[in-house]
Simulated scan of single mutants.
Amino acid sequence: MSEQFPPRKPAAFRLDQTKVRMTDDLDEEPSANETLVHQDPALDDEPRLPREASMPPKRTSFGKWFLIGLSGLASLALGLAVDSLIRDLFARTDWLGWLGVVLAAVAAAGLVGLAVRELGGLMRLGRIDDLRTRLAEAADTDDATAATSALNDLLKLYKDHPQTAQGRKLLRGHMREVIDGRDLVRLAERDLLAPLDREARQIVLNSAKRVSLVTAVSPRALVDLAMVLFENLRIIRRLSVLYGGRPGSLGFLRLAKHVLAHLAVTGGLAAGDSFASDVLGHGLAARLSARLGEGVINGLLTARIGIAAIAVCRPAPFIETNGPRVKDFMGELMSSTPADDKPANK
Results as ranks from 00 to 15, higher is better:
31 S>W: 04
288 L>V: 03
38 H>P: 09
142 D>V: 00
41 P>V: 06
288 L>E: 09
300 L>V: 02
341 D>A: 06
317 P>V: 07
266 T>Q: 15
82 V>R: 03
334 M>D: 01
135 L>M: 07
173 G>E: 14
255 L>S: 01
215 T>M: 06
91 A>G: 11
270 A>L: 08
298 N>F: 02
209 K>G: 07
30 P>S: 05
26 L>W: 08
160 D>F: 08
259 V>H: 01
256 A>C: 10
148 T>K: 15
216 A>G: 06
179 I>P: 01
94 D>N: 05
70 L>G: 14
185 V>N: 00
319 I>S: 04
159 K>R: 13
103 L>N: 05
226 A>C: 02
10 P>M: 14
138 A>D: 00
14 R>W: 03
90 F>A: 03
335 S>L: 05
178 V>R: 02
99 L>K: 01
225 L>W: 10
135 L>C: 01
190 R>K: 10
136 A>L: 09
143 D>T: 07
120 G>N: 13
80 L>E: 12
61 S>C: 13
127 R>C: 02
218 S>W: 14
179 I>M: 14
3 E>P: 00
313 C>I: 02
266 T>E: 12
316 A>G: 07
51 R>Y: 08
41 P>K: 07
339 A>H: 01
78 L>W: 08
41 P>R: 05
81 A>G: 04
293 G>L: 07
312 V>R: 10
340 D>E: 05
200 A>C: 03
303 A>H: 04
113 G>P: 02
257 K>F: 11
131 L>Q: 11
